[in-house]
Amino acid sequence: MTQDNTFFRGNEDKIFWQSAVVDRTAHDIEELWIPRFRIDSDTRIATFGTGFSQHLGLALRARGFNWIDAEPAPAALSDAFCRRFGYRTQSCRLGTFNTISMFNQWLSWADGSTRPPAEMWEHQGRFYDPYRPLIEPDGFASQEEGLQSRAATLQAFSEVITTAEVLMLTVSSIEAWISGRYGWEVPLYPDVLPGFGNAADCNLRAFHFEGCRRHMADVTDRLRQINPGLRVLLALSPEPLPVTARRRNVLTANTYSKAVLRAVASQMVEKRGFVDYVPLYELVNHPGARGTFFEPDLRRVSPSGMEMAINYFFRALHHAYGVDVGPPSPVSHRVAFQDQEDTRRVLEAWP
């Protein structure tokens, strides 16, 4: 029997693998993302999440966009020093995090629906915030100083979510560590940094689809309750998991984690008109790139991959709305200390 291909005749090239993928270079993909709403240089935009979001925040600033920095660094400090202490990386000093549940936790503290614990972890006379362990590499002088710093960040975070017009959130993992003492999520595996808790006091929680969906729905709905005009951009970090705590092959663990988060993001876009998804994951992992957008370790995104993804973000805005996005500019791959010494220590200390 001859197959009837009438449906496919006259359709655009983008629906066919050959014409949309094989016949194009990885730098020449169009219509992968048609932005749902306009973002221009006047739009107040905030970024949070994984290390990848830091690169976009820097690019927004460099191109003259209105990127929100609600917790600015002291004027006398260099860029490198500021980033080492968590300034100029996210729209306030939340530090990097990988899960949607971690962002939901910060949101519940900021809107007053739950009360954050008065918890600091002590090591050799210095105090570390378990929920922002990398923003003060040498710790705080006292518990009071650490709690005051967290309170300032929560105030800044509240300002961001109430005044932003667009909030971009980048996540990468479904694996979360929960403090057994207080029941709150911490962003790193315990015992891998000075003062960062005891593994015996923390429990692994791996969220499946429904758990991630509930958190994502809660986050998007709560943001709109706080700020009715806010629009949300979701993205999935293209970098694979460096390690999994679920005692299975990291390749399958990574595939499952990304698949769950990608499916959740699609559902949010389908059901909420104020939510959009930016395909950073698809851009960097494009088969036509043949792995060239990654460093030799096959995990970290290369500078060319970072530039390609970020430049595509701005190019899509220009094509959809005629936005003046300025000229492409090189992206510094190592924008934050988390990508360097602290990440190396985390991985070396992992059991």
Rank of each mutant, 00 (worst) to 15 (best):
F16E: 03
D23M: 06
D23I: 03
R24N: 14
I29Y: 00
T50L: 14
L58Q: 09
R63S: 07
A70S: 12
E71M: 06
P72T: 08
A76S: 12
A76K: 10
L77P: 01
R84P: 02
T96I: 13
T96F: 13
T99R: 03
M102N: 11
M102K: 05
L107P: 01
T114E: 15
R115P: 01
P117F: 04
A118W: 10
W121P: 01
Q124T: 02
G125V: 05
Y128Q: 05
D129W: 05
P133I: 05
L134E: 09
F140A: 06
A141Q: 15
A141V: 00
E144G: 11
L147A: 04
S149I: 07
S158P: 03
I161V: 15
A164Y: 07
E165V: 00
L167Y: 02
I178L: 13
G180P: 11
Y182V: 08
G183L: 08
E185R: 14
V192Y: 05
F196T: 01
G197C: 03
A199C: 09
C202G: 02
C202I: 04
N203K: 03
N203M: 04
F207L: 13
R213Y: 09
H215T: 06
H215Q: 14
A217F: 04
D218G: 14
L223R: 00
R224H: 14
L241T: 12
R246S: 07
R247Y: 09
V260F: 02
A263V: 04
M268A: 09
G273D: 15
D276E: 15
P279Y: 05
P287A: 05
R290Y: 02
S304Y: 02
M308S: 10
I310T: 03
N311P: 06
N311V: 11
F314D: 08
F314W: 08
L317H: 14
G322S: 11
P327M: 09
H333G: 00
R334F: 12
D339I: 05
T343E: 15
T343C: 12
W350I: 08
